[in-house]
Amino acid sequence: MRMGSPWSGLIGPALLLLLVLAALLAPLLAPGDPLDMVARPLTAPFTDAWFPLGTDQLGRDVWAGLVHGARVSLVVGLAAAAATLGVGILAGTVAGFRGGLVDDGLMRLTEAFQTVPTFLLALALVSVLGASAGNVVLAIAISSWPPAARLVRAEVLRVKTLDYVDAARIAGMAPLAIAFVEVLPGALQPVVALAGITVGEAILVESALAFLGLGDPNLQSWGSMVANGRALIRTAPSLVILPGLCIAMAVLAVSLTGDGLARRLGLGTRS
């Protein structure tokens, strides 16, 4: 995302730092299980010093939910993005480097996955495999690898014609080694730029799944907090507003940071 310098330069990392701190310090900031019903239901925000942001309809501490929710969002977001990029890089490199039938097959597979709307596929996978944090990561990776694969493939195709790759080939390196040692690093630059967006999207998908009731029931997640508050938007709108703000903040933080990082590495200007 191309933005005026102060924005991506400072705000992204600052927000991200805040979230990471909240996630790391969650057990200190809000001891105990955030899913525990600990207080009078529907305490309004700013009325009780012990529960500064109030409680939901089951008497769960909203503040505890928000700080523990940061863990879920960040961990699931990062893990899912890493898995997504991993699958994408593997498929893209193999397809681009081998070419021929392998490339054709992999590209058809990529198209098949792209034909099915990403979120719909993730949704179907989680409802079939079961709603657990691990399955959410898996579902996001399976449903969102194709763009990374296509990007990497295109880069590999470009890089593999370059001189130093030819040199490696002539020097007798094994094809697989050439692919992953010589070609891939040259093709990885745009992937770095993609990483921030992928993490942001993974966080969004995780929250949307949780909103639809497909989050891990043993963890408090921002998306499920919004879903819980939804029926009460007239009585207690803060139950919807606060966790939603956190999601938006987290996505903004990672995409700004990713963008800033990519620019720092001199990649931001390439389209």
Binding site: L35, D36, L58, S127, G130, G213, P217, N218
Partner: peptide, 28 residues
């Protein structure tokens, strides 16, 4: 029924029984 699941998990953990919630759609 879902909320009681959350409560039972909390209540049993107090007496030293660890509980993992597993959710599924009606058919599942």
């Amino acid at each position: 029924t879902r909320a009681v699941g959350d409560y039972v998990r909390q209540a049993l953990q107090k007496v030293g029984i660890a509980v993992e919630l597993v959710t599924a759609d009606p058919g599942g």
